[in-house]
Write a protein that binds this DNA or RNA. Structure first.
Lengths: 201, 201
DNA sequence: TATATTTGCCTAACACTGTTAGATAATTTA
DNA sequence: TAAATTATCTAACAGTGTTAGGCAAATATA
């Protein structure tokens, strides 16, 4: 009966293997090449077994996007902890977001790709709120106000996010953005938004 | 032998019908639901016929994105012609871009979706340059310079595009952006960039 | 220990998908 | 009218996500 533990461990391992295999295929061949049969091949089981761990392919991919958000959250937290001034924190956090998008290109596509995930964006990914909340916090601090108005923070948050995500999307879809352009656009934009938040002293 | 004309007309019509059918399916059921067999059903032919008009499904969809760019170019041209001041032109052109994205949501996804079109972005869509060139022109005018430096225009162009496209993507993927937030973010951002281009007089 | 039950896993199938080869029917040319 | 060309279809291949049903091994019960 103590074998229940061992069995659970084996099941957990298989679950891990499924996710790893899916991730590997996504990275090596792109998400359009991901198939249940390929996953089954890698984990050396037959396809129906996967359905004992995930309701369907979409649920499996949803799990991967959650992994993505957890990595992103960890990275951004580390970036923040490297600085004391909110403006430095914000700058580094968005740069980290940028770097994540390219270091984990496939994960990023899964997390924000228009096609893949279309309608699963109700609140089925609580992990998505962690990075967002961090940014909100720092924007609030940067205003220097006691009780910064919610809608100001919200507006600045979306401005940040739009310009960074937009630039990333453009780069992921269309290669051939002139060299050095990205850094300049990014730094200019982030700097500009930060200036518009920071109180004049 | 004069029937050659008539035959050509019929072929053209079938080609149109194929594109229309594909567009209809994309709009009504989304692009992931688009299949050659469904198109064939609508045009009342068998699937292989489609391959006499398009090399494959991807080529068919590429044609649709070109249609998208042509509509976008027309809209933006009209927006520009409504104003004389470059700053007004720019503002209206980007607002038009914004409106297009939501009025022709499916086309926009096809044109800029990360998943759908991944690797066909070499220069196989010359139509894509028309809207871009228009914006470049107006930014150049707005600087008030005789020979505005290329890289400044380029930088501003990408800043515009990033923030607008980013905000659109976010809205298309994640619904539930707070009401009125979009307009504010958009106008603030566009206004800010325009100010950074316009010479201080 | 022998029987019953649950579990793990597989085979086989269904209904789709994009795409192609080859046969057939219709039309045009000689 | 016969030959050649063109238009269209049928049937298939190899792949997809997913599910029903069965077999065999491991476990629980008597």
């Amino acid at each position: 009966m103590a074998s229940a533990d061992r069995k659970q461990r084996l099941k957990d391992e298989t679950r891990r293997n499924i996710l790893d295999a899916a991730m590997r295929i996504g990275r090596e061949e792109g998400w359009q090449a991901l198939s249940m049969r390929k996953i089954a091949d890698i984990i050396e089981y037959t396809p129906p077994v996967i359905y004992e761990y995930f309701a369907n392919k979409e649920a499996l991919m949803l799990e991967l996007t959650k992994v993505g958000y957890r990595i992103l959250a960890k990275d951004m937290k580390a970036a923040r902890e490297k600085h004391r001034l909110p403006e430095k924190q914000l700058e580094d956090m968005w740069l980290t977001y940028w770097n994540f998008a390219f270091a984990e290109k496939e994960l990023y596509q899964l997390m924000f790709g228009i096609e893949v995930n279309c309608c699963v964006w109700d609140n089925s990914i609580p992990e998505a709120e962690v990075p967002a909340n961090m940014i909100w916090e720092v924007i609030g601090e940067l205003t220097g106000m006691e009780n910064p108005p919610e809608d100001l923070i919200c507006k600045r948050y979306y401005t940040f996010w739009s310009v960074v995500h937009g630039l990333i999307s453009i780069n992921l879809v269309r290669q051939g953005v002139p060299d050095g352009m990205n850094e300049e656009v990014l730094k200019d934009a982030i700097g500009g938004i930060i200036r518009s938040i920071k109180p004049l002293n």
